[in-house]
């Protein structure tokens, strides 16, 4: 039991979710393994983004969302009343479909997380600069941006913006990084470099990525979860899912019969 807990970063049990009257997730139970890259795939409207947005409870900002069931992240059911949303979101970072840096400087974007969780003047300037350098180096932006840290982040190229959105998660030392179609706004080069970056981060962080692009899921992920109409259809290692799908619906989707 303890070993299983350690192995899985995210465990959902009978997760149901409604947008008003519409049920978007139907009794979903998945186990996301620690340190791996797990891809959520499926046609539009299958609930993959909804599921992803449950993992940091960002869904709940809309009052018409109702959730039922259990999600255990790092050994704790995140729907328990004594869960701190702030701590949860510090451990579970999120990258969005459209790069969404905040319209302040690159430097401040990287430090945004630290700034909101600590009092002003809590850190020495040298320490903060070190963190910015480390985070930007990690995502491969330091060389390009070291002289442009004061530039407004929204003026960067989309690819740089998306990398910055990943970099700003790192100072909070998250365990899990959720990515919601992180490459859909990027060109081929941008997509490749984000995928390379994911591969670099693999192992240190548990990464869950939602993607429309099946080739991308195949390239980057260790495991795949196939969803359809709000239900989990199949979850297995990526090669197995693509080469030997167990469920005929999975097979048909992979062959492109629908979707």
């Amino acid at each position: 039991m303890a070993a299983e807990q350690k192995q899985n970063s995210i465990q959902t049990r009978n997760l149901n979710l409604w947008y008003g009257e519409f049920q978007a997730l139907k009794s979903v139970s998945v186990d996301v393994k620690n340190g791996l890259i797990t891809a959520l795939i499926g046609p539009s409207g299958c609930g993959k983004t909804t599921l992803l947005r449950c993992f940091n409870r960002i869904n709940e900002r809309f009052p018409y969302v109702r959730t039922q069931g259990e999600i255990v992240i790092l050994g704790k059911n995140i729907y328990d009343p004594d869960v701190s949303l702030i701590e949860l979101r510090k451990s579970v970072g999120m990258v969005f479909q459209r790069p969404n840096p905040i319209p302040i400087s690159v430097y401040e974007n990287v430090l945004f997380g630290l700034r909101i969780h600590h009092r002003l003047g809590h850190f020495k300037k040298a320490y903060l600069e070190e963190i910015v350098e480390k985070s930007l180096t990690e995502v491969g932006l330091w060389k390009d941006l070291r002289d442009r840290l004061k530039v407004k982040a929204t003026t960067l190229q989309l690819e740089q913006q998306q990398k910055l959105c990943i970099a700003r998660l790192l100072p909070l030392k998250p365990e899990i990084i959720l990515m919601d179609e992180p490459c859909s706004a990027l060109d081929v080069e941008g997509t490749r470099s984000i995928e390379d970056l994911m591969y670099k981060l693999r192992g240190r962080y548990t990464i869950v990525i939602v993607t429309h692009n099946m080739a991308q899921a195949r390239r980057v992920s260790d495991e795949c979860i196939f969803m359809l109409l709000g239900e989990k259809i199949e979850h297995s290692r990526t090669e197995d899912l693509f080469l030997k799908p167990q469920n005929p619906k999975t097979g048909e989707y992979i062959e492109g019969r629908y979707g």
């Binding site: 940091n56 701590e87 999120m94 905040i102 969780h117 909070l172």
Partner: peptide
Amino acid sequence: SYREAALALGATNWQVVYRVLLP
């Protein structure tokens, strides 16, 4: 998306207001 960015980093509603919306 700015609000979501800040919320996903663990900001409270009030922090979203004065750190993101007002600027």
